[in-house]
Amino acid sequence: MTGTSMPGLVTLGETMGLVTAGEIGSLEYARTFTYGIGGAESNVAIGVSRLGVPATWIGRLGADATGDMIERRLRSEGVTALVVRDGSFTGLMVKHRRFGSALSVDYHRAGSAGSRLRPGDIPQGCVEAAGVLHVTGVTTALSPSACDTVFGAVTRARAAGVPVSVDVNYRRKLWSPEAAGPTLRRLVARADVVFAGVEEAQLVLGADGESSAAALAEGLAALGPAQAVIKDGARGCTARIEGTDHRLAALPAEVVDPVGAGDAFVAGYLAELLAGRSASERLRTAVAAGAYAVSVPGDCEGLPRRPELAALASVQDVTR
């Protein structure tokens, strides 16, 4: 935890071991690998903590070396890790580049400890004391019990007056668009803040490919969230925040590893939201954090700290 007494972020989900092949080409010919951790919610927790805001991550880990590593890593980043040890294995991600910049991510998580998350894993009073509860569509896809845990946490947050943040985070390898759409739409409708990529927003809204980012942000906001942010990669972001439209260009960055950039963006935005900063400041920090993240290999290694953001403080946005 940081030294601040401000209400912090609470999030929950699955964090996995992350194997990354060192060479470009077919995975069978790779001879060097790195081993780290990866998971949308823990990435956000680490990102928020690095920006000086308290963060708590809740999840299940296996009683194995990978689970031990994840717990140690989260605690070393200042994240409060509320861990349930499970009899199943800790999940695994494998990343490799088949050619050029084409990145492939395989998941080994069916039946994992993280997929066995259940509502009782969230301690009483934890969500209720949060400054923001952050959840993602990834966890709703893992299992019925994990989905119930997400919606149960959201219900508790709303009853306590705690703002709910949702990152749609659709994963095609976990479920079909037909299965995901209704669940994600129901989740977004219960959020105060929602983040989505262009295609994710189209999935939630049932919109066609001709919809602009501004129209998608407006559509998401119409479902209920007062803050709807479209993450648009190299094109920056577009948002509808408390009825006002915002647009911010992306920062130039050498893309080394795009995985985790969206989580960095969300962490930057939520850290500033929890710190009480304006919509423009939230978006500037979010864009800067995303730029830092893509420039470093790994899911969370490139998440910036406050001093690293100072050099990018001159970024401007457009508000209408």
Rank of each mutant, 00 (worst) to 15 (best):
R186C: 09
S76W: 14
V79N: 11
P54M: 09
F151E: 04
V84R: 15
M69V: 15
R171A: 03
R72H: 13
A160T: 08
L117Y: 04
P54V: 10
R186Q: 12
T80M: 12
G152N: 08
W57P: 08
W57E: 10
S76H: 15
A130D: 05
V53L: 05
V188H: 09
A55G: 04
D68N: 07
Q124C: 06
R97M: 10
G114Q: 04
S143D: 03
R97F: 11
G59D: 03
L103A: 14
G91M: 10
R158T: 07
G152P: 05
D121E: 02
T56C: 03
V138G: 00
A63N: 14
R85F: 06
F89A: 09
P54K: 07
M69D: 15
S112P: 00
H134K: 05
A130L: 04
I122W: 07
G100S: 12
V135F: 04
V79I: 14
T139F: 01
S101T: 15
A113H: 08
W175C: 03
P177Q: 11
T90L: 02
V84K: 15
V162K: 02
L61I: 10
A65P: 11
L61N: 05
N169Y: 01
C147N: 14
D121V: 02
R73N: 13
I58P: 03
L187E: 04
A146T: 06
G114M: 02
T139R: 01
L133E: 10
R97E: 09
M93R: 10
V83A: 12
R172L: 08
V193M: 12
P123I: 10
P144T: 03
V188G: 04
E178F: 11
